[in-house]
Amino acid sequence: MIQDTVLVVTLVLMGAIVAAFLFVAINAKNDGGEYAPIQGRAYAIRSKLFWVLVVAGVLITTVTTLDLPYAATRGEMAGVDKQIDINGKQWYWEIADTSAKVGETVVFNVSAGDVTHGLGVYDQDMRIIGQTQAMPGYANSLKLTFDKPGNYKLMCMEYCGVAHHAMVSDFTVTE
């Protein structure tokens, strides 16, 4: 899952920052003498760090924007097996169809009848596999392919009032 990659990258980068601050904190009480040489070395490291971040940022941006989740909302429905209209209301989902078959690519056309909601699709392990906002006056189309059978949950991801946390519906994927 993408969450695993996110966690690992986050921990590595946060760990690097922890190490840098610990290194400086531990050595801070030593008097290093003249500031200029220390500053010069630091600026050289900073310059390298800057370019590493620039190159990494350009590469990551290029790779991660090749496949954006917005195509279905722009009307691109190639390869879509089924479209399901979903309307969010305080505090339930109106769902045109609550099932799909394994391997099907489904587009959820999501809107809202009163306030802004958020449709989050959770798999049988209660991990989110995709989401979009549900907003009055607009329709967002969320495209998902269901690879595994089971009971999925459609949950509200945008705070919508006092029973927000109870806005949960079932969605079944069969063989």
Binding site: F21, A25, K29, N30, I38
Partner: peptide, 10 residues
Amino acid sequence: LTIVHRSGIQ
């Protein structure tokens, strides 16, 4: 980090 490193800070 630069200003603190080996500064003898209290």
